[in-house]
Design a binder for these strands. Sequence first.
DNA 1: CGTGCAATTGAAAGTACTCAAGCCACGTGG
DNA 2: CCACGTGGCTTGAGTACTTTCAATTGCACG
Lengths: 230, 230
Amino acid sequence: MTALVKTKAFENDSAPLQSDIIIDVGGIVATAPVKRLKAGETLYVEGDNAPYCYQIVDGVMKEYNTLEDGRRQVADFYGVGELFGISESDKHLHTTEAITDCAVRCYLHDAYLREVAASPERSQQLLDTLMTRLHRARERIVMLGRMSAAQRVAAFLLRLSSEQETTNDIQFVMSRQDIADHLGLTIETVCRVLTTFKKSHIIEMKNSRLFDVPDINALDDTAHGMGTRH
Amino acid sequence: MTALVKTKAFENDSAPLQSDIIIDVGGIVATAPVKRLKAGETLYVEGDNAPYCYQIVDGVMKEYNTLEDGRRQVADFYGVGELFGISESDKHLHTTEAITDCAVRCYLHDAYLREVAASPERSQQLLDTLMTRLHRARERIVMLGRMSAAQRVAAFLLRLSSEQETTNDIQFVMSRQDIADHLGLTIETVCRVLTTFKKSHIIEMKNSRLFDVPDINALDDTAHGMGTRH
DNA sequence: CGTGCAATTGAAAGTACTCAAGCCACGTGG
DNA sequence: CCACGTGGCTTGAGTACTTTCAATTGCACG
């Protein structure tokens, strides 16, 4: 349950990072350097050599592909504790960029895999991570293939909501463009759907990145209920 | 390089299965029972307990999800040699059905994972399989999120083409409905796109499931070229 | 108070969908 | 042998939803 919400990173550099969430994946945590990124900074680009894989210590990152014509498809957002860049064999297959200021632990790819191979538990752990990612990807395939704009946005809000323990609020860090690129929609459609939700009193917009959801079930109905594709 | 093409399974039950392609994944091949399925038969349904994972010995299968309203999203097609059902933790997450007559080797899920855990190479092998699946899934996410109907169909034909070593022909076993459910389109849209391709002389339809592609580059251009979503 | 970027709204166009009907190959029964 | 029914595929007409293009508004910042 990672939170794709704003954290207070860098407000005080001596403040403890949320490293209690970090599992020592290979006994290599101690030696793994931590890299800090400013919001908007790119960690690596699709096609780059992939000597490292990474685990988020603080912040939120997005992983995306750019098409020939400049459109983007955001594969996933990662929050604190999540590992990424591991599934790339040799070259990175995505571009990964910090949405907020971030801190990431860098593991040498080879060393990491060696550690994994040497330990059944760690192997199992990585296997679980990959399987989870695969499930997430498959869910998104269903979403992109078969759900309407309203359903996609509702499902996305639901995901955000489930990832934070706050009562009824949804606070998030990604832009409308990021959301659109994640859901396979345009920014305008995302806006219009949100406006519709607001008018239907499914959500209340405290500000453009902080919503209140008085009745989460209404949102859930929207995500799963009627509304064919198109 | 699995072939999602018609095989001559069951024409002669004593004919050697294409088991030369089968890698002995765990020394458990010898003891793994082989199950035979008629075309259209369901191996397991979403939500079933998942005691086994499977590897295709012969035939082509499809793995899909059914939505509340009856629409389907085909996650993937599997051909000879491919392993599936492994990423499910406890319950199956998809329904899997034989498209052609099939033969599948059944591995006890737990035993298989134990074998994997005990062997670094096998572990690596499974890791590779999962990573490949993840890449495939991500490619499909881009496709479903950002590509037009024509691009999706072209990309699908390209995949089929690359999976068979025949000169210019594309022979396949899945129905228009399967294709539509795989690409997130309707059966009518698939037909119309194919008709367009035929009129543009990008393909020639020898019969409804056997096409000729005189110029594969034209198809490639269609898959990657212009044609925004909507 | 202007500047710049993000978000929102409007109007028009386009793509893919729905519904409905026609076509074709094939198997069955008279 | 042929009429008939079935299932898969194709085509047509009209519609609905999303996109595109073009402003406009809102908000933070200097």
